[in-house]
Design a protein around this nucleic acid. Structure first.
Length: 431
RNA sequence: GCGGUAUUGGUGAAGGGGUUAACACACCGGAUUGUGGUUCCGGCACGCGUGGGUUCGAUUCCCACAUACCGCCCCA
């Protein structure tokens, strides 16, 4: 094995790529219905685009960035997530201007990169499909984004979904809560896990998320952020909940839920799926929230935003685990069997004629015997075979056979070249 | 970045310091001349992840590295 793919990357081969195409197509169709348009931004950006937006102390920035200096000594980074690049593009192209309709709604899909230890559903190069909507503070827009996420996952055949909802409030809320949390946790400092000791002052919210059993016991009695919401934040959150109720979307409020990226505020949510494919318990497959202030952070005007990102690898694993059927878009209509060395050119012309007629066609290129070619046609589940040998070549005919019934008829080549579909319709009225 | 487990052909895998590395599936070929299933016959590991070491001799023992999977961290 001379070369192998870089650690944490994957080859998506035929057999699986159909699932990816199905996911992407389903997403595009659904996004169009919600009136989101596609935006394509670079796979790498200036390092600062991510470090400014994700938070200098976030794990993504401190240890997971694929950053490098290029030959012009520019400090670049492969995108670890989709939002920052979209916001940068939004600002750089002045899409906040009055000539664009608000909210400005876009979606993206593509590879993301994080330098971390690979596991199931976690790679160094992975893919996300996400949406962003800029320019409105309406809680109903948060809910539209959430509904879109739920809608997408259910269209893709996932069941056992759980929507977890929380709010981080506004600046004032966060500052007050942060202090309250520190005040609460400090008396327990010695009891905390080593990880949480570090987190306490760096990012106390993270302690809430600790997997350590003892940490969780302590945290169970911690104050809830919901008790520190400002009136505005409370109103926003209540309206989000009311709108979800109105749409009949179930959710669980999880006051301890936090985000890995620092730019979120107000509504945050995760859609989780329960499947052994991704280990024990629920795993997040789609997550997002509101990020008011991010546009300003990257040099734009004050302009709110809300969006989500979905992990395609995780999604595909879940779909495979739940055996979601993926439609086969290109069944084989006709396999052309050529017998003898002299038929190869005619065979080539025939497959081309059939393709021109709008059907799918294939043939043998290994000079194999008729029996082997029929075996192949059978295995490929061809609807018809079209057989031509020296005899037929001399007569300018070919034998068209319906594989399901075994019925075979002789057809003039001229008819095939003129209108293959008509030949099939005429000879096999039922099929 | 830390810890654990694993690494044999296209695939699933058995084996174990010593001539030809089971078995199954898949694939290819054949069973009288140009037709799909079944059956039968035959073929199919540059040699056991890579590089060192121990040994008369290693794929089998030891070390390092690589990769995968699991847990932690974190996250989609």
């Amino acid at each position: 094995m001379r070369y192998q793919r870089p650690k944490g990357t994957a080859d998506i081969l035929p057999g699986t790529s159909e699932t990816w195409q199905f996911v992407e197509q389903t997403a595009r169709d659904l996004f169009a219905r919600y009136r989101f348009d596609e935006i394509r931004t670079p796979m790498f950006e200036n390092f600062e685009v991510f470090s400014r937006t994700s938070g200098d102390t976030s794990d993504i920035v401190t240890k997971e960035m694929y950053d490098f200096k290029d030959k012009g000594d520019r400090h670049l980074s492969l995108r670890p997530e989709g939002t920052a690049g979209v916001v940068r593009a939004f600002v750089e192209n002045k899409l906040y201007g009055p000539e664009t309709q608000k909210p400005y709604k876009v979606y993206y899909m593509g590879p993301m990169f994080r330098y971390e230890r690979p596991q199931s559903g976690r790679q160094r190069e992975f893919h996300q499909i996400g949406v962003e909507a800029f320019g409105s503070n309406a809680p109903e827009l948060d809910v539209e984004v959430i509904a879109l996420g739920m809608n997408l996952l259910s269209k893709l055949g996932l069941k056992h979904l759980r929507l977890a909802l929380n709010t981080l409030g506004d600046q004032e809320t966060r500052a007050a809560y942060r202090q309250a949390l520190i005040d609460f946790l400090e008396p327990h400092f010695d009891e905390l896990s080593d990880d949480s000791k570090v987190r306490l002052h760096k990012n106390p919210l993270r302690v809430l998320d600790s997997k350590d059993a003892h940490d969780q016991e302590i945290v169970a009695n911690a104050p809830s952020i919901l008790d520190f919401l400002t009136p505005d934040a409370t109103t926003h959150f209540n309206q989000v909940k009311a709108s979800l109720d109105a749409l009949g979307i179930d959710y669980d409020v999880d006051a301890t839920m936090v985000r890995g990226l620092d730019y979120y505020n107000h509504t945050i949510f995760e859609i989780m799926a329960d499947s052994p494919a991704l280990g024990e318990g629920y795993t997040t497959v789609l997550a997002g929230g509101r990020y008011n202030g991010l546009v300003e952070e990257l040099g734009g005007p004050e302009m709110p935003g809300v969006g989500f990102g979905m992990g395609v690898e995780r999604l595909v694993l879940l779909m495979q685990a739940e055996q979601v059927p993926v439609p086969n878009d290109h069944p084989l209509d006709v396999y052309v069997v050529g017998i003898g060395d002299d038929t190869s050119i005619e065979t080539l012309k025939l497959v081309q004629a059939i393709r021109r007629a709008g059907l799918t066609a294939d043939r043998d290129y290994l000079g194999r015997k008729p029996k082997a070619q029929f075996k192949t046609a059978n295995r490929l589940d061809a609807h018809y075979t079209l057989t031509i040998g020296d005899q037929e070549l001399a007569n300018q005919t070919a034998n068209l056979k319906a594989m399901a019934t075994g019925e075979e008829v002789s057809v003039p080549l001229a008819d095939i070249y003129q209108d293959f579909q008509a030949v099939v319709a005429q000879k096999f009225t039922t099929k």
